[in-house]
Nucleic acid binder design. Structure first.
Length: 277
DNA sequence: CGGCTCTCCTGCAAGC
DNA sequence: TGCTTGCAGGAGAGCC
């Protein structure tokens, strides 16, 4: 499930391969993955464009094209971008194929068909649904302790739910949210506006640290995620709580617990992350 | 508007 | 062994 560190890693690895290349053809195999415009318009606008640079906003990957367009890609759960030779057989769930001027292809495949591609004019990027309501980038200067304090104060949801809310902060998913809460010694069920200034400060540092470490380790590969080189990340080996139900906490040895919060799994150590203290 | 639930989809694991 | 059932999850729609 590509979250901020995974998308950032894809941006860096894929960027080295496809920046400067022209898209010579677009084949849409499953049209529902194209959110906007129509498949015909999508192909027509992209064909002949050059990829000038790659960007990222939250979990969205951005391919800046000549002709003033941006190809906005969200991989959701199982989406993959595969840079490969045309002779390579199409994977079962390949939905879109971009032919590139170096003779290779960029393929979008997605087992669960949740991922979406969208084309938007560069100046209209901040009007794209999903993108326009994103909260601050947690690794940029705009994400501050003051912001976190102010926003937490007016929220009555559980802190775990808030961390997953992209309109609150962009880029955290289930893995890094659980890891950040563990690092901050915060129980995922805590109500956001009950956190003390000290706890908020710990959470602030925990969020930036886990994301930074995720990037340094080229992301977390559970099942599907690979980077632009087709390589798996390493951060799954450094996870403290996520997907570790029944295992010992690496700090205190207590069994890691899993509960559901708003339908999402939350992994935590019941001792290191006590609800009341 | 805030906050919650349902939905999309396939692959895999658990259970009988 | 082979079937059925349930679960995983990001974000948008829809509800109160």
């Amino acid at each position: 499930m590509p979250e901020l560190p995974e998308v950032e890693t894809i941006k860096r690895t894929l960027g080295k391969k496809i920046t400067g290349l022209t898209i010579t053809d677009v084949e849409i195999i499953m049209s529902k993955v194209i959110r906007d415009p129509s498949p015909e318009e999508f192909s027509a606008q992209i064909t002949g464009s050059k990829i000038t640079r790659l960007g990222r906003r939250g979990k969205y990957l951005l391919l800046y094209l000549t002709g003033n367009n941006v190809l906005v890609i969200h991989l959701r759960m199982t989406g993959r971008l595969v840079y490969t030779e045309p002779s390579e057989p199409l994977a079962k769930h390949t939905h879109v194929v971009f032919s590139l001027s170096d003779g290779n292809e960029l393929r979008f495949n997605d087992i669960r068909q949740f991922g979406r591609l969208q084309l938007a004019p560069k100046q209209a990027l901040n009007q794209v649904k999903g993108l326009k309501d994103l909260g601050p980038e947690p690794l940029e200067r705009e994400f501050t302790k003051t912001f976190l304090r102010r926003e937490l104060k007016r929220k009555r949801v559980r802190i775990k739910s808030l961390l997953l809310d992209q309109t609150f902060i962009a880029g955290l998913g289930n893995i890094y949210a659980d890891e950040a809460l563990y690092r901050a010694h915060l129980n995922p069920q805590r109500i956001a506006n009950s956190l003390s200034p000290r706890e908020i400060a710990k959470l602030y540092h925990a969020i930036t640290e886990v994301l930074q470490e995720g990037i340094e380790n080229r992301g977390t590969s559970f099942r599907d995620y690979v980077d632009g080189d087709g390589r798996k990340g390493n951060y799954q080996e450094l996870l403290q709580v996520y997907n570790r139900e029944g295992s010992a906490c690496k700090h205190c040895g207590t069994t890691i617990t899993r509960i559901k919060i708003n339908g999402r799994s939350s992994y935590f150590c019941p001792v290191c992350q006590r609800e009341h203290n």
